[in-house]
């Protein structure tokens, strides 16, 4: 790692002030991506603003229609919370499947979505469930939030404070893991929300996206059978040592059918 300064603010305002004063600074949440990136010298921030002590970022508000989870919530906390599982089982599944136990002990919701790794799980959860991201400045829908490869609409001095998830009628998340990294080769969130059916896909393309073709079919008939014969296009999907675009396109269809069946089987 290159040397850096380290600060530990106590409030959102203080954290933003520090960020504005140093264009090379970065937020440090769980550090499960940032620290390895710094060790590889892929990132070299001049300053790390550790968010551990920032007041309010671990607060939750649980309602029947929405659950709001603070950005510093660890994956383990989300995975193990009864109040999450009983309302959005699929969200528990997402959190419980990230990385490994030690990574889940440390990694955070806000860190994951701000990083927007094209194979991360949480972006699919937020996009599939139609979540809203609350930042220090505004509220952003998941549809707008995730832009492209490791890119979001967040400004440099904008901090993710919490995420509000609407409780769906039924939803399920399935991923086909790359065994080495435990990232999704392809992951699919299928949700029947109050505003319609949503299908979000991670791992397959350069960033998380909605599979509108599958959404349309499921909106008419929410059964796995409705997706049979819908061939996903491999155009624009990722090609790497783990799988071809054609393979990822095929997996997307398979996982969407299985997730639909699972959503039906364990309705919330």
């Amino acid at each position: 790692m290159y040397p850096f300064e380290y600060v530990r603010p106590a409030s959102v305002e203080e954290a933003i002030g520090l960020r504005r004063a140093d264009a090379g600074a970065q937020w440090l949440a769980g550090g499960m991506t940032l620290l390895p990136s710094m060790k590889l010298r892929l990132a070299a921030p001049s300053q790390l603003i550790d968010l551990t002590d920032v007041e309010g970022l671990d607060e939750w508000s649980i309602g029947d229609e929405h659950i709001v989870l603070g950005s510093m919530s660890s994956h383990r906390r989300v995975a193990e919370a009864d109040e999450v599982r009983t309302r959005i089982q699929a969200l528990s599944t997402v959190a419980a499947g990230i990385g490994d136990p030690q990574v889940r002990n440390r990694g955070t919701l806000g860190g994951s979505i701000a990083n927007n790794d094209p194979a991360a799980d949480y972006p699919a959860a937020l996009l599939g469930l139609g979540a809203t991201i609350r930042t220090s400045q505004r509220e952003i829908s998941a549809d707008e939030f995730f832009k492209d490869f490791f890119e979001t609409v967040l400004e440099d001095d904008e901090l993710v404070v919490a995420v509000s998830f609407p409780v769906p009628r039924r939803a399920a998340y399935l991923k086909f893991r790359t065994p080495g990294s435990r990232y999704a080769l392809v992951g699919v969130m299928v949700a029947e929300t109050r505003d319609g059916v949503r299908v979000a896909v991670t791992g397959a393309g350069p960033g998380v996206y909605r599979a509108t073709q599958l959404e349309t079919a499921l909106a008419e008939d929410f059964r796995p059978e409705a997706l049979v014969g819908l061939d996903m296009s491999p155009d624009g999907l990722n090609a790497d040592m783990h799988g071809s675009p054609e393979y990822r396109a095929h997996l997307t269809g398979v996982l969407a059918r299985r997730a639909t069946a699972q959503a039906i089987a364990c309705e919330n």
Binding site: Y6, G31, Q102, V103, N105, R106, G180, S181
Partner: peptide, 21 residues
């Protein structure tokens, strides 16, 4: 942070100490 050789407990929580300041 893949292999887990460096796991220690910090305040009772198992963490990978190679990926923790």
């Amino acid at each position: 942070s893949q292999c887990g050789c460096c796991v220690v407990h910090v305040d009772g929580v198992a963490l990978k100490s190679c990926t923790l300041l």
